[in-house]
Design a binder for these strands. Structure first.
Lengths: 181, 181
DNA sequence: GCAACAATATATCACTATGGCATATTGCCC
DNA sequence: GGGCAATATGCCATAGTGATATATTGTTGC
């Protein structure tokens, strides 16, 4: 068995915030945790059905205006308990699968130009990510001064430090490529 | 379809190094790229069979002494071409799934002690990782001064910078927790 | 000398997760 | 009014994980 279903807990955590549809959950997660977590519909919807079947969430069909009907899910007491148990549990290791580094590692046969281009594009991606993080930081400061805000800033800070380190690494690579020609 | 099979390329890359059995490939990858890449047997063996069926590798049964027979795989010319194409291609984004951060993000209901313990364990993990990286660095310096060595050190350096940044983050979290009591 | 255990070598299975495509409606811009 | 983004969900093929099974050899300790 593949450890445990972490999507479950991302969903329960989001619903602890407020009742939402699957689509809303995806949007909410994308806005808040996308720098260290990703979900996709293909898994999200089945997990929601499963959680409903287990009684950890309730499902309610809702019609608003003439928009397509949506299923709004709400956390139950048992769902809260389940969330609480997971929160206190030991977190699993993050997946290690960095394709860029794998290409570099086996990149002996690549010419220097291709290598440098790879690094430069990575640097651009990271700088772009930093802009996104800055925007998230602004949003948190404005909208969420509460007890959550501090924890959110902590996770944001993680992303910032990682991205800074990645840029630093790109620059070191550039200097190395410039020397070794 | 789920983007593309990256395990394929990890395997081709390893076999470009030298002919090996599935077990050997796993060992070789674990020793060299484990700080940014992981493979497991459950996927590795099926992929090897698939690569053989496609003619990108050849399979040869080998008996050595009375040890269990093993299948040694060797890269074909078409396999080399496939590897070359992938090396020059745009790398896919790394999976974003950090369970520790997800727990912190939803961790409003956790008490400070639990939070601090989580951070401390993370710090210990990172310090442990740094020790492993240092050992790998030594090994590379000793055994591989060739053209590969420089690229390997680049990927190693990435791991070092990430781990340093992670420890820095842990320390910032500690200071935050100390302030906010 | 034998039990316990690590390493060698592969395979299978259940489950988790990804990403592409399909579908249908509404709202907006040119 | 044509096209495209957003809302809302579902399905499928494929990728990837981790537990477990199996059989042999080599090593370590009692």
């Amino acid at each position: 068995m593949a450890r445990h279903n972490t999507t479950r807990f991302a969903v329960l955590g989001a619903l602890a915030w407020q009742p939402m549809s699957g689509y809303d959950i995806k949007k909410a997660l994308d806005r808040s945790v996308s720098h260290f977590w990703s979900e996709n519909f293909g898994h999200l919807y089945p997990v929601l059905r499963q959680l409903a079947a287990e009684g950890l969430v309730t499902q309610k069909r809702e019609q608003s205006g003439r928009r397509p009907a949506k299923s709004v899910y709400r956390l139950t007491d048992r769902g809260e308990d389940e969330l609480g148990r997971w929160l206190a549990s030991e977190p699993g290791a993050a997946p290690r699968r960095n394709e860029l580094l794998l290409q570099l590692f086996f990149g002996r046969r690549l010419d220097k130009t291709t290598l440098r281009d790879k690094i430069r594009r990575e640097r651009e991606r990271q700088v772009g990510a930093q802009a996104t993080l800055a925007a998230v930081r602004d949003e948190i400061k404005k909208a969420h001064a509460g007890p959550d805000g501090a924890l959110w800033l902590l996770t944001l800070r993680y992303g910032e430090l990682m991205s800074e380190a990645a840029v630093k690494w790109c620059d070191e690579c550039e200097r190395w490529a410039a020397r070794a020609r």
